[in-house]
């Protein structure tokens, strides 16, 4: 990376990092139980009452961290998919991955299995979907983004039908839990560590690919002409994006909108340089989901909203404003 690039990219990333830390601080300090600042500080410095310690350290902190990591995963996966498919409508779920995961998760719920089984089953469903879409799109002929996209969209529609079928036949007392999963809900997140680890590893791994991704974004022919080995590159990007999405979906269900809109928002503000957009999407996705989850927990407390509702409510106006302002 050139010195000039670094100087150009560092400030926005530092600003986003600062906003990320602020959003985390906000998420940890707000909840349906008000904790006065003095008490909050006592907990931070290792004191405070047992109740406040439990609330902050056992409930809010892991949940905020999981939300940040999940949002980051979705942001990066969305950015990668948009580059890979060269389609602005692409999001992490466009190739049917969330549908496969949902069928897995709902099946586990139907059998009354616990959280671990639901997560495992969701991950397995996501992987099945990935292999299915890629295998079918590859087929016997050549491999094009359009073909991949169409295969993905149709497979997603197939999963959608299976999901509707399962919802129609599920016992009514299980339906709310299933709907919450489909809308995305951070209450499912147990430990933030898998999501955080995968996000950090993926960001570090994708960093050297930034330049090649920039070229790939202009089209496979140009990329090949400029010396990028297109096929292995596409496979890698698709595999990484799928893995990131699968981990995100496994952590908190099918949270929509983050993966679609966060990379676009950042491109409108920062320009389309993947070396900047990828880490920025990680931070931006994290910020959006942490803020959304904080609102979901507190807006109608003690009633709890699924976070997917809020991501769209926050994201839609922000995105429309940015789009309107840009020429």
């Amino acid at each position: 990376m050139y010195r000039g690039d670094l100087q150009r990219m560092l400030p926005p990333l530092i600003v986003l990092l600062g906003m990320g830390l602020l959003s985390l601080a906000l998420a940890v300090s707000i909840g349906s139980v008000p904790i006065p600042p003095g008490e909050f500080w006592a907990v931070v410095t290792g004191g405070g009452s047992e109740l406040h310690r439990t609330l902050i350290i056992e409930l809010r902190l892991p949940r905020a961290a999981a939300a940040f990591a999940t949002g980051g995963l979705l942001g990066v996966a969305g950015a990668l998919m948009q580059v890979l498919l060269r389609n602005p409508l692409a999001d992490p779920y466009v190739l049917g991955l969330s549908g496969g995961a949902a069928v897995g998760a709902l099946t586990a719920m139907l059998f009354g299995l616990g959280v671990t089984a639901v997560s495992g089953s969701a991950f397995a469903g996501a992987m099945v979907s990935v292999v299915l879409v890629f295998g079918l799109a590859h087929g016997t002929g050549s491999w094009t983004p359009t073909r991949l996209l169409l295969t993905g969209v149709v497979v997603a529609a197939g999963w959608g039908a299976v999901i509707t079928f399962m919802l129609a036949l599920s016992p009514s007392e299980q339906i709310p839990g299933m709907l919450y999963w489909l809308m995305g809900d951070m209450a499912y997140a147990r430990s933030p560590w898998p999501a955080v680890t995968v996000l950090v590893v993926a960001c570090v791994l994708m960093l050297p690919f930034g330049r090649s991704l920039n070229v790939l974004a202009r089209g496979p022919l140009q990329a090949a002409a400029l010396g990028v080995s297109v096929r292995p590159m596409t496979w890698t990007v698709y595999a990484v994006a799928s893995l990131l999405t699968a981990v995100a979906v496994t952590t908190a269900g099918a949270i929509g909108f983050v993966g679609l809109v966060v990379p676009h928002m950042l491109r409108l503000v920062l320009g389309n340089d993947q070396r900047l957009i990828l880490p920025a999407s990680a931070l931006g996705g994290g910020i959006l989901l942490v803020l959304s989850d904080t609102l979901a927990r507190t807006l109608l407390a003690p009633e709890q909203l699924p976070v997917g509702v809020i991501t769209a409510m926050l994201g839609v106006p922000t995105f429309l404003y940015l789009l309107y302002r840009s020429r």
Partner: peptide, 18 residues
């Protein structure tokens, strides 16, 4: 006092009631 709905419980409210 309410601590959420039966399909989504406000964990903080439960803990706060000790």
């Amino acid at each position: 006092p309410r601590i959420g709905s039966h399909n989504r419980i406000d964990m903080e409210a439960v803990l706060a009631a000790e």
